[in-house]
Amino acid sequence: MPTRAVPPRPAADPATDARRAVMALAAAARVDELAPVEALAGPGVTDLRVPEIGLVMVRGRAGGSGRPFNLGEATVTRAAVRLAAGETGFAHVLGRDRLKARRAALLDALWAREALRPTLEAEILAPLAARLDAARRAEAEKAAATRVDFFTLVRGDD
């Protein structure tokens, strides 16, 4: 079977992969699902980058795997914070929700504290992942119900 022409992603270390997975969950979250980070972050947070709405150019590829082209833009909100203890956190999330971007940045900063990870998992990440998985599965099951097999009918004229 021919291989896809999509280039392999640059190899990332496990720590970066874990951090990216947290970022992916935060990007897919509703703003209220990230609310616990406010209390966990505590006082003394510096907004290195006050939440800011902007654009990213979304790129596609000619034919699916050929040369990239600019498909159109998407709104993105970004934020960066530093906790009182010095950990920095970054966020870039689709949409225009400043509060969500700031909370996602706080989550990224808190993730740097290894001792806090079980708390983050239990309070935020696990319920969020469960909701997203259920939503994805529900969509996939609706799609599966529309799976179709076309039969080619034999022609009668030999």
Partner: peptide, 15 residues
């Protein structure tokens, strides 16, 4: 390298 812990903020209100 991780962003220096000394990085300073920019505009208080970017817009």
């Amino acid at each position: 390298a991780p962003l220096a812990a000394t990085l300073r903020p920019g505009f208080a209100d970017p817009v």
